[in-house]
Amino acid sequence: MTSAGLTAAHLGLTTCATCGLLSRPASDTVPGHCPRCGASLHRRHPDAIQRTWALTIAAAICYIPANALPVMITTVAGSATPDTIMGGVVFLFTSGSWPLGLIVLIASVLIPLGKLLAIAWLLIAVQRRALGGERARMRTIRLVRLIGRWSMLDIFVDTFTVALVQLAPLMSVQPGLGVVFFGAVVVLTMLAAESFDPRLLWDRNPLESTHD
């Protein structure tokens, strides 16, 4: 894609993030409001880089206790066994339901880690004004936004297990502290993916600085 194309930014136009209407902002410094829906106009998502970095770093910090602390504590006949996320995966593999074990492994371990790495990679690419590969980065952000929600899987598994297995003193399951950190990872990475503005990837394109 090297042929001439024109962006809204070239013409000083702004797309409304709410309704998609293309309009001319009141001024470059104070863009004002969308004439159709009244939402505040922003040329790019406000403070996209800083906000996305902050959310990603916070998620990366929560990722450690999310995996190290138990998410469930099973008590059978008085003896308690704590289980981490990986412990749950191992349980599914050894109990013969390896397809489910694989799904939980992907949703709870690989997707959150992949999301953190992918968002960091996109941010670094924008900050280094990397040229080329915009389409691959675009596919990455779309994938992150599409599959990110699936890392909520373990939260639901834990919730329904805890809700159902309350047969003390025979057998009961309590949630562990890891679950709240894991929930934080999911929410923070989803917010990070939303606050990132993919147009920043293309603003570094030489197309932006050529007028024909």
């Binding site: 749950g88 349980f91 599914l92 109990s95 339901s97 489910l100 799904i103 939980v104 929600r149 699936w150 909520m152 899987l153 373990d154 939260i155 639901f156 598994v157 919730t159 329904f160 297990t161 159902l164 297995v165």
Partner: peptide, 15 residues
Amino acid sequence: VMLLGLLVALVKIAE
């Protein structure tokens, strides 16, 4: 996601 979570929980508890 909730549906899949339910199914995984079902399989786990079925043990």
